[in-house]
Design a protein around this nucleic acid. Structure first.
Lengths: 153, 153
DNA sequence: TGCCACTGCTTGCAATAGCAAGCAGAATCG
DNA sequence: CGATTCTGCTTGCTATTGCAAGCAGTGGCA
């Protein structure tokens, strides 16, 4: 029981705190959230590990952002990332090709600014097409070593 | 099977596309991601609904952001993320000119996609870009009416 | 040709999520 | 006071997730 609570950054404690802050009983919040009250109790005590969907519902009941709960549950990572890259990747209104183009241009702009800042003739870093966009120093996925990793099955 | 796939915005199709783009077999990606290959196959075909944890692992294997998968899985709402325009404007690593260029390209891509959608007879799906998205406009939980809702149990 | 390695997938199972029914204690009310 | 309502929690159950074992097809090689 404590192990789950520890691992997810005391999600349960946070939930209880928020619920008490909102002056809701466990049953009231469960009803608002659309989950069973025993299950909510178990979550608060760290006995269960709720899905993102349940967290969404609980967040709705508490009128807080689901992301706050995701962070505590370890679903979201609060590490700093280039926001532009995230936004481009997350934008459902762009095609894969458009995303790639935008990421390329963005990367080259950033590289250009680094070069300008250095002024020391450091070799230009070629813009790398990475759909994930989070590790620009890596080669393209398609150019990766194609020898298969150890078989798992 | 199709119902899950429809509901989560074709997560499975996206996963397959990304995997193929990375030139990985199903087994290779499963190994990289640390999930079983039958399960990955089921996910791609929409037969299973993976947890956020599994999505995180798969994203790691594909070297893309987990959030892209969360969006397609319905775990994250795209309105909760920084919009591309906002992100570009806020990026300290870009010059004004670069920002303008990126914004112009982004806008033309979006317009292109709207036109494409119109030509196909679909209703325009371009989301209204509202500043701040769905940032909670309601007060703190503590400020809400504290009369209990109807009891459910 | 047979053998081997690879591919994606089927199937049955164990573990866990999430729930309904219900318990015991506390608080409130007539 | 007893009855009622509320509180958080226990327990046993079903549905689902995720996996291991294995199948059938494909391609490459001696």
């Amino acid at each position: 029981m404590a192990s789950i609570s520890d691992r997810v950054g005391d999600l349960g404690g946070y939930l209880r705190e928020q619920r008490e802050h909102a002056k809701l009983s466990l049953r009231q919040l469960a009803a608002l959230a659309g989950v069973s009250n025993p299950y909510l109790s178990q979550i608060e005590r760290g006995l269960r590990k709720p899905s993102a969907e349940v967290l969404q519902q609980i967040a709705k009941g508490l009128r807080i952002s689901a992301e706050a709960l995701y962070l505590r549950a370890g679903i979201l990572d609060s590490e700093e990332r280039p926001q532009v890259e995230i936004a481009i990747n997350a934008d459902p209104g762009l095609t894969s090709r458009q995303r790639r183009v935008l990421l390329d241009i963005y990367a080259s702009f950033r590289a250009e600014n680094v070069r300008t800042a250095d002024q020391q003739g450091e070799p230009a870093v070629a813009p790398v097409d990475a759909e994930g966009g989070t590790a620009p120093t890596r080669g393209e996925p398609g150019t990766r070593d194609t020898s298969p990793p150890d078989e798992q099955s």
